[in-house]
Structures are given as structure tokens and as C-alpha cells.
């Protein structure tokens, strides 16, 4: 009986190897099943979802106006100290002082893309962009000022 079991084992082993090789052969002859993408050659056709968390940006409209009131909610929500809001006081036409942002400094090198700042913002001033290639040659380039120079707050945003 030992011999029968031994031969059974050998044929079972060969069969199991052949089953695996059949699967390999299937993919060898069916090139359409291959799903490899050739990054970075396919950069133009990359389709990132709108919710993808790449980096924090501040959208500006065509009049160079943003929605940030300088309330520092994002600064408080950030776990890593990524955002620093530097405020100034504008003089309104009727002579009153009004708080506005001077600079919204964003340290990309500290950011973990957790989306808590965007959630915390009461006026939807910041959002996540779909960029993901963040490498630069100098570390100082990672510290960004999100509001564009000369920009001001949009009418009606409090």
C-alpha cells in the first residue's frame, strides 16, 4: 500500500504544479488582462478623484478674491502646526478697523493630509487639491503662502 500512496502523492504533486502553471500560462497568452500602468508616461490621462487629498490650497476667483476671514479655525484644528495665520487690520471706508489675513502660511513638509482644517473652516476658504508630486530641490520651497499677493476677502463673507 505504501507504493500506491507514494505514486498517488507524486501524481497529485505534479497535478498541483500543472494547475498553477496553467494559470501562469493563461496570463502569458492573454495580454489584455494585464493592468499595469506606465507612470509617469500616463500622467496626462491620470484621473484622480475630486476628494483626493493632495495639498491644501485656497481658491481665488477672477477678481483675486478669497473667502478667508482669518478666524484661525484651521490653525487650531491642525494636529501638526502646519498652518499659521498671520492677521492684519484693514481700515474700512467708514474708518473702522477690520481683521483680515495678511498671510496664510502653509508648511507642506509638516502636512499629513488629514483634512481636519478643511472640515473646520466655517467659510469654505480652503480645500484639498489633487496634486501629488510634491518633491522639490530645496526644502524652503515647501513653505507656501496660500493667499495670492494683493488678494482680498470676497464681498459678503463674514
Amino acid at each position: 500500500m505504501f507504493l500506491v500512496d507514494y505514486i498517488k502523492d507524486v501524481f497529485g504533486a505534479i497535478k498541483s504544479l500543472a494547475t498553477g502553471m496553467k494559470r501562469t500560462g493563461y496570463y502569458f497568452t492573454h495580454h489584455k488582462e494585464i493592468i499595469t500602468q506606465q507612470y509617469p508616461d500616463n500622467r496626462d490621462t491620470l484621473n484622480l478623484p475630486e476628494r483626493f487629498k493632495g495639498e491644501v490650497v485656497m481658491p481665488h476667483d477672477e477678481h483675486n478674491e478669497h473667502r478667508c476671514t482669518g478666524c484661525t479655525a484651521c490653525e487650531l484644528a491642525c494636529p501638526n502646526g502646519t498652518i499659521k495665520v498671520i492677521t492684519k487690520f484693514d481700515i474700512t471706508p467708514d474708518g473702522k478697523k477690520k481683521k483680515a489675513i495678511d498671510k496664510l502660511v502653509y508648511h507642506l513638509e509638516l502636512c499629513t493630509m488629514c483634512n481636519l482644517c478643511v472640515e473646520a473652516c466655517p467659510s469654505d476658504a480652503i480645500k484639498m487639491a489633487q496634486t501629488f508630486e510634491h518633491s522639490v530641490f530645496d526644502r524652503s520651497q515647501l513653505t507656501k503662502v496660500l493667499n495670492k499677493p494683493g488678494s482680498k476677502i470676497m464681498e459678503g463673507v463674514e
Binding site: R51, T112, M113, N115, M128
Partner: peptide
Amino acid sequence: MEETCGARLTMNYMVPGGVMHDIH
């Protein structure tokens, strides 16, 4: 995951009280 949560590995999708966004 990327479509609904915005990230592929470190999603940070659960917040106290529910989830951060609705499903896509």
C-alpha cells in the same frame, strides 16, 4: 477608498460621531 475617503492608505475617515464625508 481613494474616491470616498480621499486617500489610499491613511484615510482618517472616521471622526467622533460618524464619518467625515458621505459615501461617494
